[in-house]
Amino acid sequence: MRALLVVNPAATTTSARTRDVLIHALASDLKLEVAATEYRGHARDLGRRAADSDDIELVVALGGDGTVNEVVNGLLHNGPSHDLPKLAVVPGGSTNVFARGLGLPNDAVEATGAVLDALRTGSERSIGLGLVSGTPGTTDEAVPARWFTFCAGLGFDAGVVGRVEGHRAEGKRSTHSLYVRQVVRQFLGDPHRRRGAITLERPGKDAVGGLVVAIVSNTSPWTYLGNRPVYASPLASFDTALDLLALSKLSPSSVTRYASQLLSSSGRGPRGKHVVSLHDAPEFTLRSREPLPFQVDGDHLGLRSNATFTGVRRALRVIV
């Protein structure tokens, strides 16, 4: 099988020596071409080249969730098709939500072994993905639609992601404590936490306004704090459409309660009178009366004033 390995050399949890070992292991079973990413969006360009090729049957993404998201968007640049190369993932980032959602080990070496075993036995699955389109917060011009593998968010959580990314750009590592500190700072500085600016719209349903945060999930857990899973929408699955968790109020007491529910091993997720949730929703739109932070698969994409989400079933074949 001819395969393209897309390697992020800046992946936070793999060294150059480890990557060399993984490349050697994959090359023993595959006709392997290796490409290292050199700029933001390079993995997307490589995925697109693979999708347009006549002979690449598999793309392996070695990196974090951002690398995987770019590869997926490249592969699906013309939409889903059974003729597209399959995707395999070797986790190399700090959280690796998508790989762990597929049931892969969080260790890159063990995950490589699991991928090779799956290739030898022909084990794969078709998974659903999310697609989001809309307009940025500064103009009315639409931006290109973006695929996401496990989550997207508008409002509070995207603001936290943006803060974390800012600190990482300054050379700080993405740690549990860094994330928690940014949650606190976002809470203290969020002008909408008592009266939300987001409105949820669904075909044939009444609009729901006054939302502070909206988290769209394509799998569960939504993310991790270290090795601890965070359950926003416990029923979310790669086999269904999209789930939504939205909150209409964030007070000090409610934040403490929601945090406990998000981290609870019961996996029930947040609940209460200020909680709005959807399960297996094929399409909905989030609108804001002013531009708010927006994130996709943990990648901060600036400000958005509206975003329409579509759940696309069986969008991509994945080796697991």
Rank of each mutant, 00 (worst) to 15 (best):
L116D: 09
R120D: 13
R120K: 08
G122C: 14
G122R: 06
G122F: 04
E124L: 07
R125S: 07
L129N: 08
L129F: 05
L129K: 00
G130R: 08
L131K: 10
L131A: 00
V132T: 11
G134H: 11
T135Y: 02
P136D: 12
G137Y: 04
D140A: 15
E141M: 12
E141V: 11
V143N: 08
V143G: 02
P144R: 10
A145P: 04
A145M: 01
A145D: 09
R146N: 07
R146W: 04
R146P: 03
R146I: 09
W147P: 08
W147A: 00
F148S: 03
T149V: 13
F150E: 04
F150I: 05
C151T: 15
C151N: 14
C151H: 09
G153P: 05
L154T: 08
F156V: 10
A158W: 01
G162K: 09
R163K: 14
R163V: 08
V164D: 05
E165S: 14
E165W: 11
G166I: 02
G166L: 00
G166N: 09
G166C: 06
A169W: 08
E170S: 14
E170P: 05
G171S: 09
G171W: 11
R173C: 06
T175L: 08
T175N: 07
T175Y: 04
H176F: 13
H176N: 08
H176C: 10
Y179N: 09
R181H: 14
R185S: 15
R185I: 15
Q186V: 08
Q186E: 14
Q186H: 13
D190W: 02
P191L: 05
P191M: 10
H192K: 05
H192D: 12
R194C: 05
R194P: 04
A197H: 07
I198K: 01
I198N: 03
L200A: 06
R202L: 06
